[in-house]
Design a protein around this nucleic acid. Structure first.
Length: 582
RNA sequence: CGGGACGUGGCGCAGUUUGGUAGCGCGCUUGCUUUGGGAGCAAGAUGUCGCAGGUUCAAAUCCUGUCGUCCCGACCA
């Protein structure tokens, strides 16, 4: 039997006013409702209510992992630098890795992820094909020294993550587990009450090729997603763009004076053509520091991740660098570029024989410049950022753009880590091979924020039943009397007896305060017990998600209570009946 | 790391331009009244104005430095 939480005892200090340094709903409401407090930038303490929610979310993740045969372990947060040197990531990971030394001067770091530790954990004992496949996971705090922590739990320096790692003898076995994980992640999102979408993604720091991100759909999401009605969806970072540039006509090749023109908009206006008929220049440098000039249709933006794929280590140049290379910003073009500059151009421009481009001379542009005739392109590639309405790569229909919060990601790592870290097993023939690995992460604390982003209104939070800090809040409108409070206590006790998590607002507060705070904290169901209702022989129920109210007569309640004592499933049926369906 | 802004009781803010010894709302404590959507009246408590230097008869206010915080960008699971 669950005990009844009492508001008189609960440490959940609320804020009437929105904290000045919180910008998005989840951050504001988790602070206001007393679920957490900030300790420093990107570092938060969870208060009792927030911690209850975290536990619920963790438990969903745990059940889904256990359900597909993964085994829970716990690895250290503090890790030896030695292992990171071995994998090469001590240098590769960059300043995001929280580094420190112990008293003997031995290098350590706070784990941002656990590939190194877990390979080390198993490499001496996971030696036979007979022991594979194997999946291990943990739920634990991770540390990343984010360049710019922001939005509360959305991007913090310490956060709670579920991370799982799988080991296999073959790619097929890896794919099988990967698929199970994929399915489990979908169930996780659903059970957490999220509206979500799996999308194709870039593998970034972690490495590997096949990867999918699970995003909770939300306006405040940091990621841009593109999707199609056919089911195809991707993070816009990797989505192919399909610009439709317009030719100016190669026969018009001519250098013309364009005084005062510096931007694409000005250029198009000056010439009286569409921006799609102009070509935008973006200048950067590759890993060796060689200048790279990129050309894309004027009505599109550069996708830097794509540029990095075409030119390893690409990054945009500073104004100083551009000047140093002798390029006039605002008038850069491929015709007559200084020696030694690499030229990249967007695929879509390949068949365009009349480009409108800068003349590399302040105040002059070329029109009708033709690739192959007037200039050469070293690399043709997809370089543009995808736009709403671009063609779906799968079916050709127009793509739509939404925003998302990344709550999870699944990777097929292959043998990347097992090779460098010497994680080998022996096969039936007695030969050694590195194992195939997969890794799978869920942001537990970020999930809590994502839920609030989706489940809030002008009054506060409305938690999905599955993760709410308690299922129902009983609100006696007066306390200390011998009618209302005893009646409320009885209802609360009976509900708790049925296995519900119940909180009772037994504070000597005015009704308005109790209503406002119950709404703010987001209990899925409120049961109001007041003199008025008692006289009419009924309780009042309010479903927080919809803010719909209805009354329930004592008879109705007693009947349901009696039924529920015999048949536990009645609790679920009850919630469905009163309208708490998720 | 670049750009911008901000640090004044627990929270939200005014006061800084033009230096004169700190104020408002909420919250907190006590009393009375009130009691179905963040109550009213009264009385109280709480601040080395982020910190350190400097200028000055005098600094929340001006100057320098420093630390912290937020937003945009770059970057990142």
């Amino acid at each position: 039997m669950t005990t009844v939480l009492r508001m008189t005892e609960l440490y959940a200090p609320t804020l009437k006013e929105t904290p000045a340094d919180a910008a998005i709903p989840s951050h504001q409401l988790l602070l206001r409702a007393g679920f957490m407090r900030k300790s420093a930038t990107g570092l938060y303490s969870y208060l009792p209510l927030g911690w209850r929610v975290i536990h619920k979310i963790e438990q969903i993740a745990r059940e889904e992992m256990d359900g597909i045969g993964a085994q829970e372990i716990m690895m250290p947060v503090l890790q030896p630098a030695e292992l990171w040197h071995e994998s090469g990531r001590w240098d590769d990971y960059g300043p995001e890795l929280m580094r420190l030394e112990d008293r003997h001067g031995v290098g350590m770091c706070l784990g941002p992820t656990h590939e190194e530790i877990i390979v080390d954990l198993v490499r001496n004992e996971l030696k036979s094909y007979k022991q594979l496949p194997l999946t291990l996971y943990q739920i634990q705090a991770k540390f990343r020294d984010e360049r710019r922590p922001r939005f509360g739990l959305m991007r913090s320096r310490e956060f709670i993550m579920k991370d799982a790692y799988s080991y296999h003898t073959t790619q097929e076995s890896l794919e099988e587990t990967y698929q199970k994980m994929y399915d489990a992640y979908g169930r996780y999102c659903e059970r957490a009450g999220l509206e979500y979408r799996p999308v194709a993604a870039d593998s970034g720091q972690i490495g590997g090729k096949v990867t999918v991100e699970f995003h909770a759909l939300a306006e405040s999401g940091e990621a841009e997603l593109v999707s199609c009605t056919c089911g195809w969806a991707a993070n816009s970072e990797i989505a192919p763009a399909t610009p439709a540039p317009v030719s100016y006509g190669a026969s018009a090749f001519e250098k013309i004076a364009t005084p005062g023109v510096h931007t694409i908009a000005e250029l198009a206006a000056f010439l009286g053509c569409s921006e799609a008929a102009t070509v935008k220049a973006m200048v950067g440098k590759n890993a060796e520091g060689t200048p790279v000039a990129l050309f894309i249709p004027g009505d599109y933006d550069l996708n830097e991740l794509k540029a990095e794929r075409a030119f390893a280590g690409f990054e945009l140049a500073s104004d100083d660098e551009i000047e140093k290379w002798g390029l006039p910003k605002g008038s850069i073009g491929p015709v007559g570029l200084p020696e030694g500059i690499l030229v990249g151009a967007d695929e879509s421009l390949r068949d365009i024989d009349g480009w409108v481009v800068g003349a590399n001379e302040e105040g002059f542009h070329y029109v009708g410049a033709a690739p192959g005739r007037d200039f050469e392109v070293d690399v043709w590639a997809d370089l543009c950022a995808v736009k709403e309405g671009n063609a779906c790569p799968q079916c050709g229909a127009p793509l739509s753009v939404t925003r998302g919060i990344e709550v999870g990601q699944v990777f097929q790592l292959g043998t990347k880590y097992s090779e460098v870290l010497n994680g080998n097993y022996t096969d039936e023939e007695g030969d050694e091979h590195p194992y195939f690995m997969g890794c799978y992460g869920i942001g537990i604390s970020r999930t809590m924020a994502a839920i609030v982003e989706q489940c809030n209104d002008e009054f506060g939070i409305f938690w999905p039943l599955s993760v709410a800090p308690a299922h129902v809040c009983v609100l006696p409108l007066t306390v200390g009397d011998d009618v209302v409070q005893p009646a409320a206590e009885k209802v609360a006790a009976e509900l708790a007896e049925l296995g519900l998590e119940v909180v009772i607002d037994d504070r000597d507060e005015r009704p308005g305060v109790k209503f406002a705070e119950a709404d703010l904290m987001g209990w899925p169901l409120q049961i109001v017990v007041g003199k008025r209702g008692l006289e009419a022989g009924e309780y009042e129920l309010k479903v927080r998600r919809t803010n719909e109210k209805r009354s329930m007569s004592f008879d109705e309640f007693n009947e349901w209570y009696a039924l529920s004592k015999r048949e536990p499933n009645t609790v679920a049926v009850f919630f469905e009946q009163v309208g708490v369906t998720r």
